[in-house]
Nucleic acid binder design. Structure first.
Lengths: 206, 206
DNA sequence: ACGATTTTGTTCTCTCGTTCACAAACTCCT
DNA sequence: AGGAGTTTGTGAACGAGAGAACAAAATCGT
């Protein structure tokens, strides 16, 4: 489920606050969801709660982390070291959640050898070697839109099976490849849409 | 609708490719959605297509842009100039979609005066003045999680009514404030979850 | 030891969104 | 001009997901 990371984060926050046991109501409030939905989600993983008591925060956190594969380290390759790639390479949230950036790749030869976040930028053609060497399963695309599809194709060819795409393009890949898309400006546009609607409604109402 | 930005982007791509008219099938393929869904979405805006012909790319693009408020410029304030805030300030996708970063704010006094992406970093306490001066309606939070709620409260207090939150926290705001959340590591965690499931299924199958 | 109370796990219902399918409408060719 | 062929717009069926509601189970107080 896509909500598991949110629960995990909420549990971490509770744990840091010193909470040992929490009810589904508490956790649901911290995660910003309905308590029934939370319980249903957790029941898919198994019965980790105790009726009349609640959930053991650390125990549940470990169980979710294990189910999500957050207990192991995931090697990650980032392709495209522009503004965004740079920020992603430095983003501490990745490392703290078990993601290790093992390589930064860029098509621009003038950037090769540059060190970003303690990792040397290498040529895109090294992808195959790096994937084989580190057993990389997850790739991040932070290139311009025009290059994204080609990068994705080569990633799949190199053996990567999960792609996080920051380029504003629809990627077409095989059925056994998972693609997740993050469009930074899309979110802003949705907010602008709401603002716009508010404004026009105001207008027509007056 | 949350899909309008995707349609807009697909239309721009088609327009740049020299396409004057497109069918709902074409546009749906470019946007990565079902054609019936696309037509129904567009019908909410009005009847901008011609039966037997399709949609005029530029005309439809203008209509969607107008509906979404993408025809005007939206002043935006970014709070928190760490790695992420830095990248967001430099992100060209914002400017090209009509978002203008009018101010960068940070609580850290040592960063004040620093110029990022052509904009001077100022004190967080200047928020009220800036919002009033530029008529800012949209704020971006790129601070650590611990500071996010406080920043959000002050944004609302200053008159901001739409917030894009990059901090991994659930923000609680009033009902007339729109909050959109982007969690960079959440997406990676979902991918890792899929990988993990694939691995365990492989294991149990063998 | 037993009832009262709390909280989980699960079933049931309902609403929303997606998809199929078709009628209306427009163009093109003859 | 008229029919064949497309393509939109929309009504209807379908399915998934969300929330309410309840039974099972555990604790606590007496």
């Amino acid at each position: 489920m896509a909500r598991l990371p949110v629960y995990l984060r909420a549990l971490s926050t509770l744990s840091e606050a010193g909470t040992a046991v929490c009810s589904s109501e508490d956790l649901a409030a911290a995660a910003g969801v309905n308590s029934a939905k939370l319980r249903k989600d957790l029941s898919y993983l198994g019965s980790y709660g105790t009726r009349g008591v609640g959930y053991d925060v650390d125990y549940l956190r470990y169980q979710i982390a294990r189910e999500m594969g957050a207990t192991r380290d995931w090697p990650v390759v980032i392709v495209g070291i522009g503004n965004l790639g740079h920020a992603l390479a430095n983003y501490s949230g990745f490392r703290s959640r078990g993601f290790r950036v093992v390589a930064l790749l860029d098509a621009d030869g003038t950037r090769h050898g540059e060190v970003v976040a303690g990792v040397v930028v290498r040529a895109f053609s090294d992808l195959h070697v790096i994937v084989r060497e580190h057993g990389v399963a997850i790739g991040v695309i932070a290139t311009p839109a025009a290059a994204a599809q080609d990068v994705a194709d080569r990633m799949v060819d190199a053996g990567i099976s999960s792609i996080l795409n920051f380029a504003p393009t629809v990627l077409t890949v095989g059925p056994d490849v998972a693609v997740s898309k993050v469009d930074l400006s899309k979110e802003l546009q949705v907010l602008a849409y709401h603002e716009q609607r508010k404004a026009t409604h105001q207008e027509t109402a007056s």
